[in-house]
Amino acid sequence: MNVFRLIGDMSHLAAIIILLIKIWRSRSCSGISGKSQLLFTAVFTCRYLDLFTNFVSIYNTTMKIFFLASSYATIYLIFMKFKATYNRNHDTFRFELLIVVSVILALLINHEFSATEILWTFSIYLEAVAILPQLFMITKTGEAESITSHYLFALGSYRGLYILNWIYRYYVEGHLDWIAVLSGIVQTGLYCDFFYLYITRVMKGKNLTLPA
């Protein structure tokens, strides 16, 4: 554990909590992509199966359980409790494609051809692109509520901070997992446009509207 990873994890945690608060307080999941949330739930489920086989630390176990539980809770709120507020007609990204490509890549490029390792690799590839339906939805509607943009900023920052963590671990611990590193770079890269808009607009108190 180093400071980059800790802040990254806290940023990830904050993102999830911000999203739950937004939906719960407004009694609405308007502007949120249910497809991205389904993908994140698949990511956590495939990656954290090792909860039962591999103990790392109390911290690690607690976080995994929280991420799993909160992602299922989010899915429940979007598709059941507040489903009347879900903007289904704006959430039209073909997310099946992301799953198919991630499965194929995980089967081809992995550290070891075993079930758990391929599921882990699949979760890493899928996480890298899981935000695309959400970003697509914002592009389509041309705007996002400020709380939704805070959510996205925290969620995007988390993997960016992990990159710093991987640089640190490479030099200090000699640890390098290039599957995670390359995927993390792709994942953070997808947020670049959004980060720019967030810093130039939302941080100055304006709404996140896309330039025409």
């Binding site: 990873r5 994890d9 990830h12 990656r47 090792d50 591999n54 790392v56 690690n60 976080m63 995994k64 991420f67 550290h111 070891e112 075993s114 758990t116 390792e117 882990w120 992990y162 963590n165 640890h175 390098l176 997992d177 995670a180």
Partner: peptide, 10 residues
């Protein structure tokens, strides 16, 4: 190096 079975990150 790969690090199978030592995925200690979240």
């Amino acid at each position: 190096r790969g690090n199978k079975n030592s995925h200690d990150e979240l």
